[in-house]
Design a protein around this nucleic acid. Sequence first.
RNA 1: CGGGGAGUGGCGCAGUUGGUAGCGUGCCUGGUUUGGGACCAGGAGGCCGGGGGUUCAAGUCCCCCCUCCCCGACCA
Length: 590
Amino acid sequence: MILRMSTMFLRTLRDDPVDAEVPSHRLLVRAGYIRRAAPGGYTWLPLGLRTLNRVETIIRQEMDAIGAQEVHFPAMLPREPYEISGRWTDYGPNLFRLQDRRGVDYLLGPTHEEMFTLLVKDLYSSYKDLPLWLYQIQTKFRDEARPRAGLLRGREFLMKDSYSFDIDQDGLQRSYDAHRAAYLRTFDRLGLPYDVVSAMSGAMGGSASEEFLFPCESGEDTFVSCSKCDYAANTEAVRVGEPAKIDYSGFAAAVVHETPATPTIATLVDLFNSRADLKRSDRAWHSGDTLKNVIVNLRHPDGRIEPLAVGVPGDRDVDLKRLEAQVAPAEIFDFTDEDFAKNKNLVKGYIGPTALGEKNVSSIRFLLDRSIAIGSAWITGANATGRHVASLVYGRDFSCDGVVDAADVRDGDPCPKCGSKLQIRRGIEIGHVFQLGRKYAETLGLTVLDQNGKTQVVTMGSYGIGVSRAVAAIAEANHDELGLKWPTAVSPADVHIVIAGKPGDETAGAGEKLAEELSAKQMTVILDDRKGVSPGVRFKDAELIGTPRIVIAGRGVATGVVEVRNRRAGTVSEVALANAAEFVAKMPAT
RNA sequence: CGGGGAGUGGCGCAGUUGGUAGCGUGCCUGGUUUGGGACCAGGAGGCCGGGGGUUCAAGUCCCCCCUCCCCGACCA
């Protein structure tokens, strides 16, 4: 088909919109693909909608290819299922809620686990019906605190979500593997580079979970990948190796020192290095020799508040995200000065492990970072203002109530799998595969009868791809200073023909004819047939819009040739007009 | 929600001690141009984010709210 620039609903912008920072947002607005319509909500213009549809089609084809079946739920959902699963409250302010004229509660679906579970419960009741894979491509709503970066984080976005239903864990594993493989194929076809990283299953009660991250500076997710082996994980999910025990038999006994005015790690280390009686002979003390004890508050789902102490090496911070992922479903919030005032056994700035722990004076649960070895000696608080203790040995002088991964992960930390250096990277989550297990099936009562006539709770998996986000990610991965340069598979058109001659000359006729020929070959053609627009504008617009192939019907037409450009490779070929359609149609997809 | 910046024709911006709202681009008309965002002339287009106040007079000063962008918190 032919899309005529003279009539297409399109206006490209000469200047960058000032409120758009990331390249995908800037270029998609400037090239006339999307317009902002609401905070975190975008209107798809004809060009943008074409690309969105093509992305959708590829995803749909790959889902259909593994045997998943498409359904479609309403976006506006009743409260009850979410009430049963607990997410009506768990989702908190992130859920868009509304009421009908009688005051009955509804929500705009942020994700549809409950609805899929109930749908299968409604129709199926036998193991013979399983496995079953269902999916939908649906607008999702989340009241994000801060929508940003155009399509990358909106409050309304398009998502493909699928769900697998199996009789047991082996079945779930097969479903999971099939989806994972389909995702690899999908992202390859979309022309999106990705890293598959281990993610936290957290409160969801599942086991395996992996995210597909598009590595990108403007990404919001931090992950690590090993420089040598294939290990990659979301920072929350990184598990450092257990350290070897240290033989402390020759270590000095713990001794308390007067350390006035040392409320911070830095002041403490300075003091130890500056006093002759505390100085180390072999090297200077550094912050990693100190044990930092941080107190946070946990809010459990039942509303119970519990203080929690976490010990990490003094040269590291507690990564609250990592910690929260491990204490989930509890949430973390600040332990305030008021809380300190109520706990007389805690001396702010001088907290030490001997006061911590369920069996000690504070009776506050005390968790140690996994990196801390049994037998290691520490400088740490002595639970009195202006006092610290040195040579306090873990396993000899103090203990803890458990081990946790709480310290922040840094660039260069050892890989838990092979010991090589980890790299910290950023990415955009474009897909997520997740073994849900029985959580939803159990709470919503999805069971089937097995071969023995016994009731079995169904085991589920859920699998998501951010469709509108993928469009933005593809734009992030495929642009230059001139504009977009789409992969062939998702470009809004296959070829863009620029008529660059003088009005009334033969270039317009040549462009029209070529457009007809390409259209007859089932290609989608953008034809710049606008009147009175200078060639410079046409070139700029073609490059901004970014179809992978651009044909210039200009001064060469007089001698029977057109210029065929490969926007992605940056190459140019002169082709005889008579062969042009054939040539363009045979250009390899990129 | 915390910190920082900003809201003035579609887009990018200026607007002085408070005194009739401007420029560039885009759009319309006519003419000249036509291989890298052309030129001339004439036009249309504004609740100056919203609401209160101060004042003879508010884009400009004061108060409240909303929205957008950046950093952080949050993010099945």
